[in-house]
Write a protein that binds this DNA or RNA. Structure first.
Lengths: 143, 143
DNA sequence: ATTCTGCCTGGAGTGCGCTCTAAGTCAAGG
DNA sequence: CCTTGACTTAGAGCGCACTCCAGGCAGAAT
């Protein structure tokens, strides 16, 4: 049938996924009907790649396979569920936003710890470093 | 010995981890010597909780257990490796920053998709909705 | 004296997301 | 004709981070 389009190796190179992962995604219902050559080999279109890029972004922002499958099913079911799809994406967006905000707070806390310790080391390595100084830094690690 | 301090259940409540996870972290070398009551039961100090909060933040920002163990080992080894510890944290910070930036880009792409579709639905549900309209939105989903 | 609760241990089980293997098909090149 | 290499499938295996279980003990309450 469709004897043109990209092979699975090409698609892997273009999307950054492995051929294994591409097949796994398809088996798991994450893709929207990749066509085949007469030989039975997969042939990927640019549309397929766009879709794969989208679900890669969803994955990279933490959406579980399960939920991507639900989304893909909704899309495959055709029209009439745009609202449902949108809600899925919007719900994910909110989760990601919260996670991002939380991660940024954690990062700030880690930053503060690094700054504190950088200061402590500077003190240790200053001109008049005492033998007891390293213990202070070690104790501070437990703060 | 130390018959005061928080029980593992208290520590779980305070840190938001489960008792299972607390024991698992200890077994895996992520903690810095939690003391025991005569009965053999664990007793957590405020210092222990602070440390657990820190490694929870490291976990929440994606640091693998393996690496937290390395960091904990460095801390347990006492003084003389402040630089090493700092480098571990700093390296992690950079990874987190990159991931955050990437996640924000992905989120922006998802936002654009949502916006585009919200527009499409608004069109569909406008005063003069045609029967063929939903197909446009469905096709757009593959973009 | 028994039961209950909360803890202990070593080790098994779970869910996720890949990742890989084995055995087979197909087409092109030597 | 035969090999090479890229593909196919079903299914097994893996690493991670928990999560849970069985069996046991210690102390308080009934």
């Amino acid at each position: 049938m469709t004897n043109h389009g990209l092979t699975i190796a090409d698609a892997a190179a273009r999307t950054g996924l492995t051929v294994h992962t591409l097949r796994y995604y398809e088996r798991d219902g994450l893709l929207l009907g990749v066509s085949r050559a007469e030989s039975g080999h997969r042939r990927y279109t640019e549309h397929d790649l766009d879709w794969i890029d989208l679900i890669s972004k969803l994955r990279a922002t933490g959406m579980p396979i399960r939920e991507i499958r639900r989304y893909a099913e909704a899309v495959r079911n055709g029209a009439g569920n745009e609202r449902e799809r949108l809600e899925l994406l919007a719900a994910h967006r909110e989760r990601v936003r919260r996670n991002l905000a939380e991660a940024m707070e954690h990062l700030a806390a880690i930053d503060r710890k690094i700054d504190y310790h950088t200061g402590a080391i500077a003190t240790c390595e200053g001109p008049d470093t005492a033998l007891s100084e390293p213990r202070r830094a070690a104790a501070a690690d437990r703060r």
